[in-house]
């Protein structure tokens, strides 16, 4: 056991799976980084966020493939390769670029197994980054996992810590169907996401939520960075005698509906903290699930805490106002309990 940051855990999972199975390749822009630059140095970057550093040195350019900035083209190559015997891990630098490769995910990868009558598979993993907090503004900060969750044929993972990231990425790479693996940029080196992980490789099944905290008064469903905000609030409120159960679904498709429903059946109150969207997002989806299937267990209206329906701003104070804050989460929890939201600040 050793404590590891999420950045290192993802790099480790990639190495382990590439060692385990020669059919696993990586493909993406700058994933090795610096090919044919004037310094002659190779493997200098590991992508703009440094996640894949060292993989080129270990596995060579035949399996760690730097592409042109041609998202649709290389995603199509990855889908074609996946349908014919390789197991590509394609990197989409930011999920905001999904518009540049949407067809290959939406109409090709997601459809192959069903549309071909079950006679083909597409073992593709798309690693991509999500999330605000880096002052990257409107085109590099979105959390569009709700878009891909809405598409039948794609599985969607949103890990919140190093342990989950390593195990879920191993599962994703061994899965015969396309998986969109959404890494929150703020979590790569986030202290609370750096946790103890075992020495040996392991997998975590999709569709099994993690109970971050157990509690009896309010259920909070949160993903990615939001689980940490929710956990912080839960710890603070426990000092005020309020018991919060934080559930991290870890995968949005498949979704562990049962854990959410069981938790709400016991607490009777639900708050969802979601960075995806104020409308038609993951938060509204979970709210609808509970309203349909656990309505009579509810003691109070469901609260959904999201960013406003507004692009992610650049200026730091504006961006902080955009990201769901602990204060808003605490306020929502207190509201479901019929308490004054202002208590959160007290």
């Amino acid at each position: 056991m050793a404590e590891m940051a999420m950045r290192a855990a993802i790099n480790l999972a990639l190495r382990e799976e590439m060692r385990r199975d020669e059919r696993v390749i990586m493909i993406g822009t700058d994933i090795a980084g610096g090919a044919q630059g004037s310094s002659g140095a190779e493997d200098v970057a590991g992508g703009v966020l440094g996640i894949t550093k060292g993989l080129l040195s270990e596995f060579g350019a035949g399996r760690v493939i730097d592409t042109p900035i041609s998202e649709m083209g290389y995603m199509g190559v990855a889908v074609g390769a996946a349908a014919t015997g390789l197991r590509p891990v394609a990197e989409l630098m930011f999920i905001d670029f999904i518009g540049c490769c949407g067809d290959m995910l939406l109409n090709q990868a997601a459809k192959i197994r069903y549309m071909f009558g079950g006679k083909s598979t597409c073992p593709l993993v798309v690693r991509t980054t999500i999330g605000a907090g880096a002052n990257a503004a409107a085109q590099h900060s979105q959390s569009l996992y709700h878009w891909v969750t809405a598409v039948p044929g794609l599985k969607v993972v949103v890990p919140s810590n190093a342990y989950d990231a390593r195990g879920l990425l191993a599962t994703a790479i061994r899965d015969d169907d396309p998986v969109i693996f959404c890494e929150h940029k703020a979590l790569y080196d986030f202290p609370a996401a750096a946790v103890e992980i075992p020495d040996a490789s392991y997998t975590i099944p999709f569709g099994e939520a993690n109970f971050v905290t157990e509690g009896t008064d309010v259920t909070v469903v949160a993903l990615g960075l939001m689980t940490h905000i929710a956990a912080g609030v839960a710890a603070a409120l426990s000092g005020k005698g309020i018991s919060v159960e934080v559930i991290d679904p870890r995968t949005t498709s498949p979704l562990d509906e049962e854990s959410i429903l069981e938790s709400v059946a016991s607490t009777g109150r639900l708050v969802i903290v979601d960075e995806s969207a104020a409308r038609c997002g993951f938060g509204q989806d979970v709210a609808a699930l509970v309203a349909e299937r656990a309505f009579h267990a509810l003691k109070a209206p469901i609260k959904v805490v999201t960013p406003p329906h507004c692009p992610t701003p650049f200026s730091p104070p504006l961006e902080q106002a955009w990201i769901p804050s602990g204060e808003r989460v605490a306020g929502a929890i207190l509201e479901t309990m019929g308490l004054d939201p202002a208590l959160a600040a007290a």
């Binding site: 649709m72 199509g76 889908v79 074609g80 390769a81 349908a83 109409n107 549309m115 083909s120």
Partner: peptide, 27 residues
């Protein structure tokens, strides 16, 4: 489609076959 015969499918999206074939060639 019939992948057992090496047919990666007709395609409803114009041009989509080009990168898919390049992917099969990469394999």
């Amino acid at each position: 489609a019939d992948v057992s015969r090496g047919i990666l499918g007709a395609n409803g999206i114009v041009g989509a076959g080009a990168p898919l074939a390049a992917g099969a060639a990469l394999t």
